[in-house]
Design a protein around this nucleic acid. Structure first.
Lengths: 217, 217
DNA sequence: GTCTATAGTCAGATAGAC
DNA sequence: GTCTATCTGACTATAGAC
């Protein structure tokens, strides 16, 4: 091992993603990052060039494995199914489980889910630059799979449903206190990723497979 | 009419809520607000005391009528039902429609939905201070109504479902480009509040009424 | 690669004239 | 109530010694 087990660059990345997730990107200064990481203030600009570039590096570091896992899950299922449409719950699990896995393991904790949720609301530039382009191909694949799984829905309806799913997903893994508020006094409000997943899957599957416009009840 | 049709205070409020919704609270400076409102920089601190107090005033101005409408809708339905449990879709519509109404009418446009979505992610202080306390009573009422409408679900499950519904809701009315991304090339991606509502209701109702833990399929 | 020192900018807040 | 002018502090970014 080295005498310095992690490089300055990696320390900055690890600290930045933690602070971004906790307080938001805009509210996290380079000074806070470098102080918490025990590196010099100028190190960020030396290694990354700017704060924006650091933000991009943090996103990329998390989004790439997430997208890879989602794509791999889907492809494995599709080759196993050999042309037959997949089950809706199977597709949902293939999409969600990489998120849960990354939230549970590694030192990153629930960093990614917070970053993803923020990317929907913080300065729109981040969304377009990273989230959109990186996720584009993956989302298209899942859209097609979902369309085959629920042929009764129109393509537009499929898009809406997936859109709703993404919104639900990104908020579900935020322990934003809404659940605790709802639970009122005395309720459990266990919020581990596993419990969240257990509660979330039936909600999503039922919502996705709800009757569409042409087949009213 | 006065020679000054709107007071400085109101001009600040109207401008602030517009900029908050567009760029986020943290990214909107008092200088930007006062410049856009054509008032003096010192006016914000004179009328509101601080930026935080201005933020609180903006939230309050929108949340109070929203909560009042939601509560009134539910109470009207409950008295009409005379003790019998309400339909799930009826409850959902009573909760969602005030949001759509406020997004559609008034000069505020879709300000409120953007503010609500932000309140889940921006500095946690805002959520606890305004959103939580203001919405507490309303959410409890809807929780009870939903529990009566779906007695098969445990209280914990009701909380989870409502939590998911709130997440879905807050993202659904953001034209955050995710839908356009999903739609790919050539699809319609009409995103008016009415269309969103039409697509949203079946998703939410199906998700809320999905089978719970004790009654597996 | 890492540091100090600092330039240049912008933030929220306030004192005091009118 | 409204204005000008200014204070104080924090920020990103960079230049240059080591």
């Amino acid at each position: 091992m080295d005498s310095t087990p992690v490089s300055t660059r990696d320390r900055i990345l690890a600290t930045a993603e933690k602070l971004f997730a906790e307080a938001g990107i805009g509210a996290t200064s380079l000074r806070a990052i470098t102080a918490a990481a025990n590196v010099n203030l100028a190190a960020v600009n030396y290694h990354f060039g700017s704060k924006d570039a650091l933000v991009e590096a943090v996103y990329r570091r998390h989004l790439e494995p997430l997208n890879a896992a989602r794509l791999q899950n889907l492809e494995k299922l599709e080759t196993a199914a050999a042309g037959r449409p997949l089950d809706v719950e199977t597709i949902v699990r293939a999409f969600v489980e990489p998120l849960v896995e990354q939230a549970r393991t590694g030192a990153s904790g629930a960093v990614l889910t917070r970053l993803l949720a923020q990317s929907l609301h913080e300065a729109a530039g981040y969304v377009e630059r990273f989230y959109a382009r990186e996720n584009d191909a993956v989302l298209q694949r899942y859209r097609d799979a979902m369309q085959q799984a629920i042929p009764a829905l129109s393509p537009d309806e499929i898009c809406w449903r997936l859109n709703f799913m993404l919104g639900t997903l990104h908020n579900a893994f935020l322990d934003a206190g809404l659940l605790k508020l709802l639970a009122g006094n005395g309720n459990s409000a266990e919020t581990s990723p596993e419990v969240t997943l257990t509660q979330l899957i039936p909600f999503l599957v039922a919502g996705l497979t709800a009757p569409g416009q042409r087949e009213a009840i």
